[in-house]
Simulated assay, not measured.
Amino acid sequence: MQCDYFDAGACRSCTWMGRPYAEQLAATQAHCAELLAAVPTAADLAWLPPVPSREAGFRSKAKMVVAGTVEAPTLGILGPDGRGTDLRHCGLHTTGLHVALPVLAGFVTRAALTPYDVPTRRGELKHLLVTESPDGELMVRLVLRSREPVARVRKHLPWLAEQLPGLTVLSVNLQPEHKAVLEGEVEEVLTARATLPMRVGDVRLHLRPQSFFQTNLAVAAALYDRARSWAAGEGRVWDLYCGVGGFALHLAGPGRQVVGVELSAEAVASAEQSAREQGLGPGQVRFVAGDATAWAVGAAARGEQPPDLVVVNPPRRGVGEELAAWLEASGVRQVLYSSCNTASLARDLAAMPSLRPVRGQVLDMFPQTAHHEVLVDLRR
């Protein structure tokens, strides 16, 4: 992939930009294999061919820092001097995002949303977070320093909806502090609809403004499909760190009882809505808002036996010592571990020697970078 921003030195976020894509995949596979080869129980791990991505136009979410002025806003990143670099034509974004971002820049001007200036700590609009669904619908989130501009956002929302017919959800998020935190805790939805439907394979998920979701939908669909094909037989399933229910809702079906556990109440509400639309009752799949480790470790106190299968999809730090120790001692027959950090995956596998990796696969969620997703099938 060729990128004018990268060639001009304006953005170097994609550290592998310009590197042949086949070479990127091979390097990622070699890196994962090397890290897991150091785990004693992984000697018989069989690697499937990596799942590739499109090199460009794959990213369905844009996280844009807003800078510049009301009359000439920039949507992109901040340079070392704290000033904005406009990246609204980034080649990673989907076609719908390419269409939406210039319109949103016009909305900034029309609604007089003063971009936040980091060096002087003045202004209101900090970030624009835009997500496109596979059906071309859009969720737009405005991260503001205060509620001061909200009335103007409401006033000009009809104009924005006319310019962007796919606009489904628009919300404002309040992040008043001057620190490197993308968003705050307070969110206010200004549209009639509060969720963005996201079709992934044969499952329709719902995304609320503060819910995490994979940005590469084609590869996410491959990840969920692979987990479904690797899941052994019927029985009870726990999906820990379930997010909006991607794994849980793909694994739900005849002969299975699935429980998804997620810290974010917003994500759980999204998962529950998706389950209802799929006609899945509480006896087939249910979701719990809570800490995944505490919920699993507390199973015995609730009088609940460990399940037959556990799916874990933790943040970059991995599942950690406590949950790894519980999985090791639990007697669970199979664990499907989806990781975005092979180094923490290797540490966790070393702490669970009774659960042996039998197969693994790299899924390239983030072309042009060293970031990746890897799915490993563990059997007791």
Rank of each mutant, 00 (worst) to 15 (best):
F6G: 00
D7K: 10
D7L: 13
R12S: 13
C14Y: 10
W16K: 08
Y21H: 11
L25K: 06
A27D: 13
H31C: 05
A33L: 11
A38D: 03
T41Y: 07
A46Y: 07
P49E: 13
E55S: 12
E55L: 11
R59N: 01
K61L: 11
A62F: 11
E71L: 15
E71F: 07
G76I: 09
T94H: 04
L97G: 06
H98G: 13
G106R: 08
V108P: 04
R110D: 05
P115S: 05
R122L: 14
D135R: 15
G136S: 10
S146I: 14
E148C: 02
R152V: 06
Q163K: 12
L164Q: 07
V172A: 12
Q175V: 10
Q175H: 11
E185A: 12
E188C: 01
V200H: 03
H206V: 07
S211Y: 08
A221I: 07
A222I: 11
L223M: 15
D225H: 11
R226D: 00
R228I: 06
R228F: 05
S229G: 07
W238Q: 06
R256W: 03
R256Q: 04
V259P: 06
A265P: 00
E266W: 06
S274L: 12
A275L: 08
P282N: 02
F287Y: 15
W295Y: 15
G298K: 07
A300D: 14
P306W: 00
P306V: 04
L309H: 06
V312E: 02
N313G: 10
P315K: 07
E328V: 08
Q334R: 14
Q334V: 12
S338R: 01
C340V: 11
N341H: 15
L355G: 05
T369C: 04
H371S: 08
H372L: 15
V376T: 03
